[in-house]
Write a protein that binds this DNA or RNA. Sequence first.
DNA 1: AGAGTCGTTGAACGAACGTTCGAGAACTCC
DNA 2: GGAGTTCTCGAACGTTCGTTCAACGACTCT
Lengths: 214, 214
Amino acid sequence: MPTTVPSPRDSEAKLQHILLHAAQTFAEEGFEGTSMRDISRVTGVSLSGLYYYFESKQKLLYLIQYNTFNFIMERLQARLDTVNDPATRLRVFVQNHIEYFLSHPSEMKVLAHEEEALDPPLRDEVAAIKRRYYALACEILDGVAAEGLAPGIPPRVAVLSLFGMMNWVYKWHNPEIDPGAEELTNGIVAIFLNGVLEEKAALYASESRARTGD
Amino acid sequence: MPTTVPSPRDSEAKLQHILLHAAQTFAEEGFEGTSMRDISRVTGVSLSGLYYYFESKQKLLYLIQYNTFNFIMERLQARLDTVNDPATRLRVFVQNHIEYFLSHPSEMKVLAHEEEALDPPLRDEVAAIKRRYYALACEILDGVAAEGLAPGIPPRVAVLSLFGMMNWVYKWHNPEIDPGAEELTNGIVAIFLNGVLEEKAALYASESRARTGD
DNA sequence: AGAGTCGTTGAACGAACGTTCGAGAACTCC
DNA sequence: GGAGTTCTCGAACGTTCGTTCAACGACTCT
């Protein structure tokens, strides 16, 4: 059908096919627990054939992590472009994260779980995106904090607790019994916003301070 | 020095020495990423000498996970024995967890991160303790919930979000810049209690429901 | 039809893996 | 001091690992 295009179409599709099944296997067996022969088996590509698409097992993991994170990041920025209200921006952030989590559980698990399996040169590149993502979250929290942050909760602890709630999802979420992205987002946002904003928060913070004699 | 005792003392101490350094290596390199030769090197025990203390690499991981979890569980039950107030019980629960986390980061990381590295027969035994721990957390939340739970947040999501906040700590906590166990516990408890109890929570839950047209 | 990529492969490489084994220290008890 | 247990180790086992390489069919251009 195409005339001038050489034929990277076929090849690109096959790479995506490999990335998909490799991510699933990494998610199930872990990066170190998965052999190139395993990936060859689940993709149907011969062992040596894999090396036509990427130059090493490390690079394969990198491709999965980089593609995944880049997609999340770009979709998030697009969605945030039209939103100004601080609380809504937070909700968009959480929803974007949770939505991807539930629709691509394997890729997300590999991203969250195999962070350190990548060796320094490539690991740093993924870490760089991760830092931008974290900075964006801090920025969003800053907006929310203008409404009054609870005392006794360092902002860093607040943001990372939010990441904890979101990123732990892959350890327990069961599509058959647990809520979908919408409801899950509502729950996490509710806990976080109510937990972190002042008024009632001040009550418990001072209570526990009194209890421990601070 | 001892007279009647055969001499398991020496051996027991050495086993603990191996468990400690193995946990550190597993935490740094991952279970699959660590070889028995690595463990031999960091413990100073010869490769074959290790097999006098445990029968396989799997069993070594099991010993680390089982000992760690058992200690946490028993200390928690002892601490809860003297406490009746629901909110304080929750605080004791979180504090016990976080305290162990910060004082034994390697063991805790291995427990949280290498859950699936254990094969079914042994994995199930660790999972059994994990279930008892989770059930205890649910029980504690039930006590707190008597004070009125926020609508729109399933209890299961609440408990697992709490676990998320606590268990994610190993990914980011830096002893040099982050708060210690006391303050960290205060922060997480404050977010969770304020986030999950009714009154203000109902506000945000209904807000987000209205926003998404539910 | 012939040159030149693109995609694929089986076979093989050396290295590293978890585990075993038999021999021998070191120690306790009689 | 000799028997028996506890502890340690070097050497080796067979297997699996990530990666390479030369070769070959399929396809596009001229």
